[in-house]
Design a protein around this nucleic acid. Structure first.
Lengths: 194, 194
DNA sequence: CCAGAATCCGAACACTGTTCGGAAAACCGA
DNA sequence: TCGGTTTTCCGAACAGTGTTCGGATTCTGG
């Protein structure tokens, strides 16, 4: 039985460790998470962390999953929204994505840049990221944009806007405010004018 | 006199260290450059490296400068090219940029992603990166695209294409082949049709 | 040739992620 | 409540890191 007292306590501690890891990432940067400072934040010894995660990489992996789950929730809003107007759907999607990236730089680095030397997401964690991409492609297909080239162009456009926004004007709107223009630009060359 | 025997030998050793550092970056990854392995590659002790660079960060800084100088040289080709056709200029610029990024992943990470924990380019090194951006803006102004929004859109578009290409299809052309389409898309909404 | 500068190296320091052995605590059936 | 098993915890230790320092060696220029 996985819902016993031990399993519950174990899950709670795992969650607490991840919370503390995010805190540390926000304070000192994603790459500056140390096992001893992390353990200290929770009042335990560094070696005790290995009861809950097989190592530092596993902690990054769990954070990667949490981040992608948060992005998936962001796309849920999209799914429930009105889909009659393709232009509005894309504008909403792009805005949400850029704001999602800018809202948490550590998360952005972890999810979309290979920022931790030597680390890469596990197959299980990567699957969630792929599923998110698939969901986005599904939304685009629904509004009549189904070819691969268009999907690739869309990912390039949105990821470019987001990375520029995060890197060069964090918290601002220098690239965020270009979303409408970008979507119009994207749509006019695709024969899907509203 | 900076061209004495000592200065010359010193410069040669600095260059050799940087070459070895690039080698190490290509072999094991940008973040896996260690002072002892780096020194071993040159047949010297790790502590001797500190005669030529103030530390590991200074080595990254010099590599950052080298990478940006290489990009500047790439833009030189652009400057000497035929500039009568805006569309061709932009296509050439985008292709060169994406291929430049894909040609050396370690360099790409160093120049365009904040990939080394705790490191950031010095003011002097960053100035070269800014100068490159300015040169690109100059080219765009020359062909009639001078407003800030357009320049920002261009950086987002090209950096997005490049990052997707490098991350998801290294060595291939899945995003590289979208350049023509991207430039046309960019130009049609800017009233600068050829 | 010789004083001074440049270069090199080994030892050491503080830090890192991780492993291991044993002690303490919690759990659960009898 | 007791006892046996599992779970949890911690300190010590190991190999690795970037870096500093003192002293030895090599080179340079007058």
């Amino acid at each position: 039985m996985t819902t016993g007292r031990v399993a519950q306590r174990r899950a709670a501690t795992r969650a607490a460790i991840l919370d503390a890891a995010w805190e540390l990432a926000h304070e000192s940067g994603l790459g500056e998470i140390g096992m001893r400072p992390l353990a200290a934040k929770l009042g335990m010894a560094a070696s005790s962390l290995y009861e809950y995660f097989s190592g530092k990489d596993a902690i990054y992996d769990a954070m990667f999953i949490q981040g992608n789950e948060a992005l998936r929730d962001e796309y849920r809003h999209l799914r429930d929204a009105d889909k009659t107007n393709p232009r509005e759907v894309l504008i909403d999607a792009a805005r949400r994505f850029i704001e999602f990236c800018d809202a948490d730089h550590a998360r952005f680095q972890l999810l979309f840049q290979r920022s931790i030397p030597g680390w890469q997401p596990s197959a299980e964690a990567y699957a969630i990221a792929v599923a998110n991409l698939e969901e986005m492609r599904g939304h685009m297909a629904y509004i009549g944009i189904a070819d691969d080239a268009s999907a690739d162009m869309w990912t390039a456009l949105t990821s470019g806007l987001a990375s520029q926004q995060v890197a060069n004007d964090p918290g601002g709107d220098r690239w965020l405010r270009l979303v409408e223009e970008a979507v119009d630009m994207f749509l006019t060359t695709r024969g899907v004018d509203e």
